[in-house]
Amino acid sequence: MLLRKLSLLAFLFTLSLSSFAQGIEFFHGTWEEALVKAETEGKLIFVDAYTTWCGPCKRMSANVFPVAEVGDVFNANFINVKLDMEKAESVSFRKVHPVRAYPTLFWINGKDEAVHTSVGGKQVNTLIAAAKEAISKQDDIEALAAEWEAGDRSSKLAFTYIRALVRRGESHLKVANDYLRDQKDLTTPDNLNIIQVATTNADSRIFDLLMKNKAALVALNGQDEFDATVKRAVNATKARSLEFKDASLLETAVKKLSAVDPAAGKQLKLEGEFELAAKGTDEKDFLKAMKNYLKKGVNGDAVRLQDVYQVAANSKFIGSDKVLDMAIEAAAASAAAEQDGGFEKYYRLAAFLLSQDRTEQALTYARMAKDLMPEGKANYGRAVDSLIQKIQNSK
């Protein structure tokens, strides 16, 4: 089978701009360095205050933080830090921000003041909602809008106002375009920073300005920041192509990215065509796109394999045996790539297969989940035993 021929070690390769299934990127400096970075960049610090024995902490690290949608929000708006509350690395943090339950999620400004706090494990949607609530507390957008309407066109206000609009997910293009249109010199540091913060979509004039001024922006803010801006803008245009089922938007995103990184453009094309086909009505087109992506774009990556399974399982084509077989194989390969043996993924796959009347396969994966389950997982053990019994009773 196709996926069995893929090396499951390939997902360990170093991810670059070419990876679009990337979640939260965590900062690896000290807490004091994170504070300086936050103050300098005008961003909040997102802190995952966790312990190694906390179950919800582990589930978020495994299943929520790696999600691309989460990474898009957090990498653009925050400096992201993970702190083990039982290690020396968190001593100075704990003196100011005591933690009584795990995980506790903090959003902290550069002055070491907590702007927003949320306790307990989160799913993708609830974590993004918490992030947006933190963002809403960061900027006084009404005051900024009033200054702008009063006629202040300074670069400082333009940058702060545009950044606040971007953070909130509100339309900023009119403000940005009005400001940039009146500038005689777009290459000043202030104007370059405004171009960079305003570049949120690849299908825009501002993205073209970003590319035109690439050398100056890299010299000003670094290659990593430039690449991250391109990646976010391209991902946003790809997301709009899926939302509106618009292949031309995907083509634009691929074209703009390919001009920077041809390999990344190829990867985006394969992934985007697969996801777009899942929203269509032609099963043959979907099968073709799915096979193509698995063969040329997944590269054995565990997260991508899981994404293939999720997209297929939630598509209108999952009733097709061919689609279902490929989805099962992708899910199983993703589970096999997990360091803990993937027992949770095998369990969820077994439950899904039961719902699809694939009882024999469901029983196989449920037993694999039981065999691979580490010690100390009594709740999961009971759930797996219950699922096995349910499968056997359904025969």
Rank of each mutant, 00 (worst) to 15 (best):
S248N: 11
Q223G: 00
V218Q: 04
W107E: 08
A68D: 14
S334F: 01
K238Y: 12
V99E: 05
K395D: 02
G342K: 06
D357N: 15
A263C: 00
Y161F: 14
H97P: 11
F226R: 07
K238F: 15
G121S: 07
P56H: 12
N221I: 02
A289C: 06
V36I: 12
L17Y: 01
E338S: 09
F65S: 09
I388K: 10
K284N: 04
T188L: 03
K132Q: 15
N393T: 05
V260Y: 04
N125C: 01
E170L: 14
Q267W: 03
W148H: 13
S394P: 05
A130G: 08
A143N: 08
A176T: 08
K345Y: 03
A264Q: 02
T281D: 11
S90E: 05
V234R: 07
D182E: 15
L353S: 10
Q361W: 09
S61A: 14
Y179G: 00
K122L: 12
A335T: 05
M60L: 14
L270K: 14
A150V: 10
F244M: 09
F78P: 12
F159Y: 14
S7F: 11
L144E: 07
T40W: 09
I318A: 07
T200R: 13
N235S: 15
F343Y: 13
V298D: 08
F352R: 04
D208E: 11
F106M: 13
L294E: 13
Q123K: 07
P66H: 09
M85Q: 11
M326F: 04
A21G: 03
L250C: 01
N292L: 07
T359P: 00
V175M: 12
K256D: 05
F106P: 06
F352I: 03
D139G: 01
L173W: 14
V64Q: 09
E69A: 12
A277F: 04
D301A: 06
F317K: 01
V124Q: 13
K256I: 00
R100T: 15
N201D: 11
A278Y: 05
D140H: 03
D203L: 06
G169W: 14
D48H: 15
D112K: 05
